[in-house]
């Protein structure tokens, strides 16, 4: 017949390594026996005493973990920061690419807008879940991996050289950024309007609209509107400096710009037929390659713009923390 003690010890010892079981069992039997005896002396029956003693020990798995000094947390303080930084970095780098990639893929395959939105949301969420799960799994294993004394896994001790540089994004530096942005945006808006009248210095394209005039019904005003928003955004960055809210706004603006632009480009709606004829598009086998390069460059530019803003924000916060500490 198995007693409560047997069941408790079985539950406790099966959670530790085979080599530790014998020792742990003997120690627990000693402790439970001694504590039960003491309770019997206070007037309890042996059965009551056993029950009380075991209740006092608490959850057998937690007890065993304390006895063999095993972590009861998934990721302890030693790895927490490394885990957290890596997770944030991965999310920031991978998720936008995944979202953009799936958007482009869907758009190319001609999915309806609703289908694209659904696929982007669904895939981005599942990519995020995968990132979080696998990263956490690796760190949980590291946390439980025994390593030579004083060192665990990839433990890299912090040194003074790892301090981030404090940038000097004073208003002067930000002003040149603002001027650059404004010049670029105004020129960009002007180009969108002027292209309607052709490219004067290219004879074949003289007086032919470059972009499909049908786009004036919605998409070109939409892009001009976005440029206005971008101008407001550039002024906001100048006025307040980079914040995470502005990073999010930047991301939204970039997506709002890049996704429709690429979609129009890839579905052949962007350029006017006259221009395509004048350029003798498609250029045989070179066509898809050129298209791929253009798409890659546009995406890279958008991603870089967002990442650049995020880096500036992170540095700025670090700097203000340093200043506050001083």
């Amino acid at each position: 017949m198995t007693t409560l003690t047997d069941r408790y010890i079985w539950a406790a010892t099966r959670s530790v390594r085979e080599s530790q079981r014998g020792d742990l069992e003997r120690e627990l039997r000693e402790r439970i026996g001694d504590e039960s005896d003491a309770l019997v002396e206070t007037g309890l029956t042996p059965a009551e005493a056993e029950r009380d003693a075991l209740t006092g020990l608490g959850d057998p798995v937690a007890l065993a973990a304390r006895y063999v000094d095993r972590p009861l947390q998934l990721i302890g303080p030693r790895y927490y920061l490394a885990w957290w930084r890596l997770l944030k970095l991965l999310m920031a780098v991978v998720l936008p690419f995944a979202a953009l990639g799936i958007t482009i893929g869907q758009a190319v395959s001609g999915a309806p807008i609703g289908g694209i939105v659904g696929a982007v949301i669904g895939t981005t969420i599942s990519v995020a879940v995968h990132l979080a799960f696998w990263t956490t799994l690796v760190f949980a294993i590291l946390e439980r991996t025994p390593a030579p004394a004083d060192r665990r896994g990839f433990d890299a001790p912090w040194t003074i050289d790892m301090l981030p540089h404090v940038p000097e994004p004073t208003k002067t530096a930000r002003r040149s950024e603002l001027i650059g942005s404004l010049v670029f945006l105004v020129l960009f808006a002007a180009v969108i309007v002027w292209q309607q009248f052709g490219i004067r210095w290219v004879p074949a394209l003289e007086s032919i609209p470059v972009l499909d005039p049908a786009l004036w019904s919605f998409w070109l005003p939409y892009f001009l509107g976005l440029i206005v928003l971008e101008i407001l955004f550039a002024i906001a960055v100048y006025a307040w400096g980079w914040t995470w809210a502005l990073v999010a706004a930047n991301l939204a603006l970039n997506v709002a710009f890049t996704v429709p632009a690429l979609w129009l480009f890839l579905t052949g709606q962007l350029l006017s037929d006259a221009v395509l004829d004048a350029m003798r598009w498609p250029w045989g086998e070179a066509g898809p390659i050129v298209a791929t390069i253009i798409v890659a460059v546009v995406i890279a530019a958008g991603v870089w713009d967002v990442v650049d803003g995020a880096i500036k924000t992170a540095r700025r916060q670090q700097r203000s923390r340093v200043t506050a500490a001083a």
Partner: peptide
Amino acid sequence: DANTLYPLLRRLEK
């Protein structure tokens, strides 16, 4: 507390 002492003895031994 017993729940502190027993694991402590093991750790000190280790």
